[in-house]
């Protein structure tokens, strides 16, 4: 069974839950930018929740099926069609051999996840099928999906059509999106006024935002506390002696435009990081379109852990609903 890619859209890649465990060697975690939606898509079609799916950005692909399959599309509101007939998002449906899956223009959100019963069955690299193009790992021979590809699909077990995820069980960002931030090790580099401005201002997603980092602009530039640059840091006040970056950490090169490091980010470098987006909110970033308004909201460790607990509960409710 293969999926014939008639048109790959803008940027369609194979993703699962990623390859954690190698970040200290400079290999990013990769995997779906919105893991909740990927899990939901897999559960809808009867796959293990970490099976490989297609992550679609902004513009839907066109795919011909060579065998009957159960399919679900979750995440962004990207209207789904089978042979031109509409299908619901966040629901499982059948696609017969010879039928074509396609999409209308994106209505909201940024990334849709296409799960196929049996899962995409390309060769894993370091324990994951997720695509990391810069390192040529996973995906289709280390790259994104391209027009003309034929993607292998595994053997389906128990998927069935007609399953749904009720709207109350979905997890998508508000508009403006609220992204919670835990201030970090280098917070002291900012003046008090700059620390307030960062949270008071409304930011907008920059068009450059991608899987490596989401860039924001529109807020006031940061002011730094004066210092004698430490050896090796350089004169720019946003520079540090090279350090480790975490998933979700927020760097602000030159103090002007915050960048949140995401699934395909570098693991270290010489920019200060003012803090990190909490893990519970990272999936939301994957659903932000360019120019969308965003507010950063300050939380403490207790708040971050409580939010993580709520996210786990939401995931558990999803599993129970689709069990």
């Amino acid at each position: 069974m293969t999926l014939k890619i008639i048109n790959h859209g803008l940027s369609t890649s194979i993703q699962d839950l990623g390859r954690p465990g190698y970040f200290h060697l400079g290999i990013p975690i990769s995997g779906a930018m919105d893991r909740f939606s990927l899990r939901a898509a897999n559960l809808l079609v009867g796959n293990p929740e970490g099976a490989a799916c297609l992550e679609v950005v902004f513009l839907g692909p066109k795919i011909e099926f060579t065998r009957d399959a159960i399919v679900a599309v979750t995440g962004a509101d990207l209207p789904v069609k089978v042979d031109g007939e509409p299908r619901d998002g966040w629901a499982s449906f059948q696609v017969k051999a010879g039928q074509v899956l396609s999409f209308d223009f994106l209505k909201s959100g940024a990334r849709a996840y296409i799960a196929v019963s049996g899962g995409i069955d390309t060769k894993p690299a370091l324990g994951s099928r997720s695509t990391y193009p810069i390192g040529a790992l996973g995906g289709v021979n280390g790259r994104n999906v391209e027009t003309g590809d034929e993607l292998p699909v595994g053997t389906a077990s128990n998927g069935k059509a007609g399953q749904q995820v009720a709207p109350a069980l979905r997890r998508l960002p508000d508009n403006p999106a609220r992204l919670r931030v835990l201030p970090g090790l280098y917070w002291h580099r900012l003046t008090e006024a700059a620390g307030h401005a960062f949270f008071d201002d409304e930011w907008k997603v920059a068009p450059e935002a991608d899987r490596m980092g989401y860039r924001f602009r529109g807020g006031r530039a940061l002011e730094f506390v004066d210092r004698e640059p430490p050896f090796g840091a350089g004169a720019d006040p946003s520079n540090i002696v090279d350090g480790c970056y975490s998933y979700g950490s927020i760097q602000v090169p030159g103090g002007s435009e915050p960048i949140v490091l995401h699934r395909d980010a570098v693991s270290g470098g010489g920019y200060f990081t003012l803090g990190a987006i909490i893990s519970a909110d990272m999936d939301f970033i994957g659903q932000l379109q360019p120019h969308m308004p965003v507010k950063f909201v300050k939380v403490d460790m207790a708040g971050a852990l409580a939010a993580r607990g709520e996210r786990r509960t939401a995931l558990q409710r999803l599993r129970e609903a689709l069990a």
């Binding site: 803008l10 902004f58 513009l59 223009f105």
Partner: peptide, 9 residues
């Protein structure tokens, strides 16, 4: 002629 995707025109 509509835009097929979001961005800067």
């Amino acid at each position: 002629i509509p835009s097929p995707l979001p961005g800067t025109f």
